[in-house]
């Protein structure tokens, strides 16, 4: 399986904390700093709370796949033929109900992707940055 190589543009500071977490080997999600309620993806305005402050919180990395697909033809802008196939996962952390993190399936030799399969967070290198990887729990 391949790994998508697409540049991460962090001109938007909304996502810096996520990639800082990946560099530290952690999966970090945004939450309302006052209430602790998960707010994901980090929006420009927290719904109903324009004064709310978001903070990044680390989750355990244990969870399951809501769904998946194996990308055979990349639709990313540019030429990405050499990077396919890879399997995209929408990961649901056990300790962040209602949150889904997009990532790729890793360490999956001999395992067919499936909805609700148990997964564990394992970030992977993708060029000059890291992206979320999720490995099957065997």
């Amino acid at each position: 399986m391949g790994i998508p190589l697409y540049p991460v543009h962090l001109e938007d500071p909304l996502f810096q904390g996520f990639y800082d977490g990946l560099d530290a080997g952690e999966l970090r999600i945004t939450a309302d700093a006052e209430t602790g309620e998960w707010v994901w993806y980090p929006p420009e305005v927290v719904p109903g709370k324009p004064d709310a402050v978001l903070e990044w919180r680390t989750v355990s990395g244990e969870g399951k796949a809501y769904t998946y697909t194996t990308v055979v033809r990349s639709l990313l802008p540019g030429d990405h033929k050499a990077e396919v196939p890879y399997t995209v996962i929408l990961f649901e952390p056990d300790d962040a109900p209602g949150v889904r993190v997009a990532g790729i399936l890793v360490d999956d030799e001999g395992v067919e992707p499936a909805c609700d399969m148990r997964l564990r967070f394992r970030p992977v290198d993708a060029g000059d940055h890291r992206i979320p990887g999720f490995a099957p729990v065997r």
């Binding site: 996520f18 990405h80 997009a102 992206i131």
Partner: peptide
């Protein structure tokens, strides 16, 4: 922004 920041990098 959310697609560019969190989804496109994982394909």
């Amino acid at each position: 922004p959310q697609k560019a920041g969190l989804e496109m990098p994982v394909g």
